[in-house]
């Protein structure tokens, strides 16, 4: 039997958070995994803020605090998403400030509205290597009104944007009438946060996968931050529990509580208290600047962030292993 040594010639993908994020150029198109306030790669987002990446192009499906905080930090040029918000945890004030009451003109920020289904299909098309895909959604809505297309002036000029937002087509095969073609999303980077990764990159996610698998395939490079790195041998014992093969992962970063303050199923719950304070700070530009200074910029790295958060807080969020969340957590202040 010929067996190749598992670790012999392969270069390790394991990096520090600083190293993994430093490769991202300004202007990169990034798809953050997770879903609004669940399993968002927040430590990676905070490191992006620390490193001051500029003119980012966000394509999360849907967006949550990661999008709002990056917009508020002035690091986002374009977003193409179906939603940017914090669910029950409050209003996305940074997104609102950038968009409403002349905000667009002042900041130059551009946003393109989509829906969960069409955003998911656009990423699927990217993952399938096809340039577009049909949908039965969007008909009759203003989401496809060219008068609202803030990216219109860039289309056909920027290689990072599709030439058109949508195209109407009559079903040429089965006479099912009119459908819309929507363009693929092809991110430069997909960044996801997961509970467990093998040392070569096999990903294991508990609960909702959201768009993470499709995102990893659609993107040129996928950075995974993880609660824990484990052995590939352990993950191979039950391959049906694994979510993404190592093949599609470019970089691995071990970042315990790297999803905080969002929830990571099976690991820890949403930090309502911290989240509320964070969202409160975003109500005004100057208080948000202070929050960014205190919780991100003044701290050298994620370890310092965890130290500031404190052991008591960290333990209070831990998930019940049978439920995947903390049933004793006080959810309303």
């Amino acid at each position: 039997m010929v067996s190749e040594s598992k670790n012999s010639t392969k270069k390790t993908k394991i990096k520090t958070l600083q190293e993994a994020i430093s490769q991202i150029p300004d202007g990169a198109t990034i798809l953050f995994g997770g879903w609004t306030v669940t399993r968002k790669p927040m430590a990676a987002v905070f490191e992006i803020i620390r490193q001051g990446k500029k003119d980012l192009h966000l394509v999360s499906n849907p967006g949550g605090p990661e999008s709002d905080l990056l917009i508020g930090a002035g690091l986002v040029g374009i977003s193409e998403t179906n939603f940017i918000g914090h669910e029950v945890l409050g209003i996305p004030y940074c997104f609102r400030r950038a968009f409403e009451k002349g905000g667009l003109e002042k900041t130059g920020y551009l946003h393109d509205d989509w829906t969960v289904q069409t955003g998911a299909l656009r990423i699927l098309a990217g993952a399938m290597g096809i340039p577009f895909i049909p949908t039965k959604s969007l008909k009759g809505t203003e989401i496809i009104d060219p008068e609202h297309d803030l990216l219109a002036d860039l289309r056909g000029k920027s290689k990072k944007l599709p030439n058109k937002k949508v195209e109407f087509i009559q079903d040429p095969f089965w006479d099912e009438g009119e459908l819309l073609l929507i363009p693929a999303i092809k991110p430069d980077y997909c960044i996801i946060h997961v509970p467990m990764v093998g040392e070569e990159g096999t990903v294991r996610i508990h609960g909702g996968l959201f768009m993470d698998f499709y995102g990893a395939l659609a993107a040129k490079k996928t950075i995974v931050t993880t609660e824990q790195i484990t052995s590939e041998d352990y993950l191979k014992k039950q391959p049906d529990l694994n979510s993404i093969p190592a093949e599609f992962i470019s970089d691995i970063v071990e970042v315990p509580y790297g999803g905080h303050p969002t929830a990571v199923q099976g690991m820890y719950d949403l930090d309502f208290e911290f989240f509320n304070r964070m969202v409160d700070s975003t109500k005004k530009e100057d208080t948000y600047v202070q929050w960014l200074q205190e919780w991100i910029k003044d701290l050298p790295d994620h370890d310092a962030y965890l130290e500031k958060l404190g052991v008591k807080k960290i333990f209070s969020l831990r998930a019940d292993p049978g439920l995947g969340y903390n049933p004793r957590l006080k959810r309303k202040s």
């Binding site: 849907p62 998403t81 179906n82 939603f83 940017i84 918000g85 996305p92 997104f95 609102r96 968009f99 409403e100 009451k101 002349g102 667009l104 003109e105 509205d113 989509w114 829906t115 969960v116 289904q117 069409t118 959604s137 969007l138 809505t141 203003e142 989401i143 008068e147 609202h148 803030l150």
Partner: peptide
């Protein structure tokens, strides 16, 4: 109005679909 909104809301999510 969309381009100069008084209040910007989070967006469709899956509602439109």
């Amino acid at each position: 109005t969309y381009k100069n909104a008084n209040v910007r809301l989070p967006g469709s999510g899956g509602a439109s679909d």
